[in-house]
């Protein structure tokens, strides 16, 4: 069964395998769609919304930089 936009984690892993040097701090959604379309197993013709694409990028970022999200608030920051 092919990958689709709801397979957030699997998509992120496939993207990292293929494009490890991608700068995700600035990756545009149009570019992401092109990269995803280049994955052989990807089989989804629906148009994803911005939040779905951000979810994929977020999951991908945590593969590139495996560290816990910073807990930021006045309890631990000025």
């Amino acid at each position: 069964m092919g990958l689709n936009w709801s397979d957030i984690d699997n998509l992120a892993q496939e993207l990292e395998k293929r494009y490890p040097e991608t700068d995700l701090s600035v990756l545009e959604h149009d570019e992401l769609r092109k990269l995803v379309a280049g994955i052989d197993e990807f089989d989804d013709k629906t148009v994803p919304d911005d939040d779905t694409m951000e979810s994929v990028i977020r999951a991908w970022i945590y593969i590139q930089f495996p560290e816990e999200p910073e807990k930021v608030g006045s309890g631990n920051i000025d």
Binding site: S25, I61, P69
Partner: peptide, 15 residues
Amino acid sequence: ILDGASLLLARRAMN
């Protein structure tokens, strides 16, 4: 040069 998931996400939010 940014290093760390939270920094990349913060930059995306800023943009």
